[in-house]
């Protein structure tokens, strides 16, 4: 094998609305992290339309990443791709690109679990070693921590994901998803000007939580039109974030770990960051938050997790490279974590 600072892994991410290509060295230096996100005209992600977008931009994003990293395809050592969980058509598009590249360049292929990649990129970029991780995005709300060979799930949503809850409300409120300005960011801005806390459902069950009732209550109040939008955004955020913070604190007390890591798209929210940093401090734990660029879905996290797996002898033969739409993170052995 080449010196690991000169050996490169290219990772492809395509589980939902982002098509991303990242390039990292085998010793964990991120050289490129290019992406293009599909922005629906209205409503949420249409899986087929998103997949069409991914297919259209694939070669441009690939080229952009290679140029940024200053390498040629022939310099690569390894191809990693997001094998699941996610939306079928989107995953298949990314997997197809990955297989084609690996076959053409005659390189090993590694299928990566997207949720684990969010944790690993958080650890790489923040230096966290063994954290309790809160992973919150449009599709996932999971509290997990490592124990004996796997990341274990301590708590998760019983219904919808945190990002989904916020996005649906934002869309109902007429906020628009723009390039570089996700719905969550628009909501956060409004919430910052909210003053009055409107009572809403707060549902924590053990270390699990339920957000669907909160979303229904918030949208019902919105349609009635009697509350200020800023106050509604504020109240929705406060309730939802308090719930995820409470379950994270429970997992932290239960596992007695010394670090808390916040990762996934919603990690960019400053209010959520401040809540989690409060509980970390209270339990004498260090708080880490993934940098914004690596909070949303990205190719670098796939590349890096591919490297970790590959270094432990894990490769994915083409005949086993089919996508896994509902691949839970607690089903994956992670021999690289000690």
């Amino acid at each position: 094998m080449k010196d690991s600072s000169e050996a490169y892994c290219l990772g492809i991410e395509s589980t939902a609305d982002d098509f991303g290509v990242g390039i990292v060295t085998l010793n964990g230096k991120i050289l490129a992290n290019a992406s293009s996100d599909y922005v629906p005209e209205e409503g949420g992600i249409h899986p087929r339309e998103a997949a069409r977008h991914h297919a259209e931009v694939a070669d441009t994003v690939l080229q952009e990443a290679l140029t940024k990293a200053g390498i040629k395809p022939r310099d690569l050592t390894l191809i990693a791709f997001s094998q699941g969980p996610g939306l079928g058509p989107c995953l298949r598009t990314g997997a197809t690109v990955a297989r084609a590249l690996a076959a053409y360049l005659n390189l090993p292929l590694v299928g990566v679990n997207h949720s684990i990649a969010h944790i690993e990129i958080g650890k790489l970029t923040t230096g966290a070693a063994d954290p309790v991780t809160l992973y919150v995005s449009g599709g996932n709300t999971i509290v997990s921590a490592f124990d004996s060979g796997r990341y274990r799930v301590f708590g998760e949503t019983l219904d919808i994901a945190l990002g989904n809850c916020l996005d649906v409300f934002a869309r109902e409120a007429g906020l628009k998803h723009k390039k570089g300005m996700p719905l969550g960011a628009a909501l956060e801005k409004l919430a910052a000007n909210g003053k009055q806390l409107i009572p809403m459902p707060y549902v924590v069950k053990g270390m699990d939580l339920s957000l669907s009732g909160l979303l229904t209550a918030a949208t019902t109040l919105l349609r009635k039109g009697e509350c200020k939008l800023e106050d509604l955004c504020y109240s929705l955020q406060e309730h939802a974030f308090s719930m995820v913070t409470e379950v994270t604190e429970r997992a932290l007390a239960h596992t007695e770990k010394r670090e808390v890591l916040l990762t996934g798209g919603v990690a960019a929210n400053k209010r959520l960051q401040s809540m989690l940093s409060t509980i970390a401090e209270e339990h004498g734990a260090r708080f880490h938050v993934v940098p914004r660029e690596f909070a949303t879905d990205n190719g670098a996290m796939i590349a890096w997790t591919g490297v970790l797996a590959y270094k432990h002898g894990i490769v994915t033969p083409v005949e086993e490279s089919f996508v896994k739409l509902r691949w839970r993170l607690d089903k994956v052995d992670v021999p690289w974590v000690k």
């Binding site: 004996s148 274990r152 799930v153 301590f154 053990g206 270390m207 699990d208 239960h254």
Partner: peptide
Amino acid sequence: GVDLHLMKRALQSTHY
């Protein structure tokens, strides 16, 4: 159902 689901979850995460 949720109550028992939580019991199961606790067993899976702590006594896998």
